[in-house]
Design a protein around this nucleic acid. Structure first.
Lengths: 334, 334
DNA sequence: GCCGGTCGTCGAAGCGCTTCGACACTCTTT
DNA sequence: AAAGAGTGTCGAAGCGCTTCGACGACCGGC
């Protein structure tokens, strides 16, 4: 199989042109007559030529690879991550780039290594935390980078994320539109708030702001992820707030437990209790009943991150902060 | 920041040696006196030298990058995938390799591209299906590859996976040891069996074989993933098999629904019904009650796949098939 | 005191590509 | 008819590294 690898000079010889001409046909950086282009392209096909990535990177100082850096805390959000990653890869390919996967195991050393060795042209960091130790490094790198999520001091960085503030607010508004007066937010486990993860806090703030604006009664609680803890939380919530008729769940792992707990506590959804979730679409759809939800637009976030990082690579100026509008999908739980 | 990039010849000059000497210090391919080595290493540190990946790949014909190819069906198993991926990256780093992430969007073209362009030295494919269209391509590639999962005709390929046959059997044995006589297996959605995904079928076969061996009564059913469908399945199962006292669930998404359904149908776990799951450890731990489970050893599978592919790169001979023994963790559900 | 053998180092030849300047044409414009 | 302005193509100079053959220095054995 796979005979000796074909080089650009063999293509040139086969087409009867200079090596540089083949290169220009491929890159389009100089005008080439239609006729010559045809011949070169034919030779490329005939010989099955693929440019050597290393040689290209060496000569052009561009590897056409971007790094995708996984979050520090591997446990979090795991399912969504894969969709981000997949979206980033797909988007990168549209810009003729490939994606190198980096984990946090190496700490910042990995980032430094791939940047300094010119293995990658640019970086996308997933699931950035408020106090993210990778952030200072990015500021001193020559390579452009984009963060998914917001650190505490985002000045000078480029960040993309779902507008969680708006998402929290949107859920409250939706419940208000449905006539609910007293509502609750069940959020992330308390440890997530403690370590100051941006998105959890921002959702809660948006929820609280909308509740105040709309003159509702509202309460926001952290929510653990085992059934028993969720059950207790829900039970106490119902005891403490007898008038409660709507709940927003912003905790993917707890969604099914909240529904199960309500079921056991004799509350029907949506008749006795309206439920809105902020979670991936498939989780919302698969729940019973299917949940009205704010989607986490993983694909869109990933795509946007790549678009931004490519713009930066081309030297274009991009906004520091890109917030993607939440989209509420109404299903049968409200 | 990041002043002009440092090259090997600057290091050589700084240390007062030839370029090739620096190279040999780094690669260890020729003996270098301790004294010279020290001086070179000092210069490398002083200047902050990092070898250029492209130049290295060009000269040595090794990119030190392996491709990790995501499964064709993105929807499947999503959480486990991330753990595989993460394990593969970590393991690859131990062999001084990085990982390029490839999706199925491009079909086989992506694989062909990164191989032909020498962007990667080797490939690891995740979640291979029985009739996987990427498999024929691998056979004609010069680059070594390892599959996670088994295709229908694995001859000439290198495959790694959990021994699902043994896992199914192990669950049945465990229930038998606990004194259960009549047991059931709730498996993947029927569409998964229809498309012949290897692991689902193999688990079922192992379960059936053990049931026969042990003289139990056993039934195996596919299992959908919405609560309502699961509820029906469980209800019918209990009606049809009044003596049933143990159930094995091999469907990550359905685990919590099965538990909720049993709860609603008035069966206590483990008193009225023993439950064993084949799923990731965290899912089993977080369920209520925590489930006895066979772990899917994602980390180990990933690590093993990398080890094998590195062996092949070095020209060593490796076994065609590597099956990882299932490990049963007993928790409070049996 | 000479020979063969390591040992440690060097210089140079690529690896396959991009890019720059040069140059031969062919059109326009005067 | 000459000067200028494009076009389209070529040759050569690297990009930063690895690797090969060469070669002095030094060793022990005779």
């Amino acid at each position: 199989m796979s005979r000796r690898t074909v080089t650009i000079s063999e293509v040139a010889k086969h087409a009867g042109v200079a090596v540089s001409t083949v290169s220009y046909v491929l890159s389009g950086k100089r005008t080439i007559s239609a006729d010559t282009r045809r011949r070169v392209l034919d030779s490329i096909n005939a010989l099955g030529y693929h440019p050597n990535a290393g040689a290209r990177a060496l000569a052009s100082k561009r590897s056409n690879v971007i790094a995708l850096v996984l979050p520090l805390r591997a446990g979090m959000h795991v399912p969504v991550l894969m969709r981000f990653a997949s979206a980033v890869v797909t988007a990168a390919r549209r810009f003729d780039h490939d994606v190198l996967l980096l984990t946090a195991d190496e700490g910042t050393a990995g980032i430094r290594r791939v940047a300094a060795s010119a293995l990658v042209d640019a970086l996308v960091l997933m699931d950035v935390e408020l106090d993210d130790r990778r952030v200072p490094l990015l500021r001193e790198l020559a390579e452009p980078s984009v963060l998914i999520g917001f650190p505490a001091r985002p000045a000078g960085l480029t960040c993309v994320d779902l507008d969680f503030h708006a998402a929290g607010a949107r859920c409250a508004e939706h419940l208000a539109e449905r006539g609910h007066q007293e509502i609750a937010l069940l959020g992330a486990p308390s440890v997530v708030y403690d370590r100051g993860t941006g998105f959890a806090t921002r959702t809660r703030d948006g929820f609280a702001a909308a509740v105040a604006d709309l003159g509702l009664k509202g309460v926001a609680l952290p929510c653990e992820e085992t059934f028993d803890e969720v059950y207790e939380t829900v039970r106490d919530l119902l005891l403490d707030h007898p008038g409660l008729s709507g709940v927003v769940v912003h905790n993917e792992a707890a969604v099914s437990h909240v529904l199960a707990a309500l079921r056991q506590l004799g509350r029907r959804v949506p008749q006795d209790m309206a439920v809105v979730a902020i979670c991936p679409e498939d989780v919302a759809e698969r729940a019973s009943p299917p949940l009205t939800s704010v989607l986490i637009p993983a694909e869109e976030v990933g795509r946007e991150a790549v678009r931004l990082v490519m713009d930066k690579l081309e030297g274009r100026v991009v906004p520091d902060s890109t917030l993607l509008a939440p989209l509420l999908a109404v299903r049968s739980s409200t």
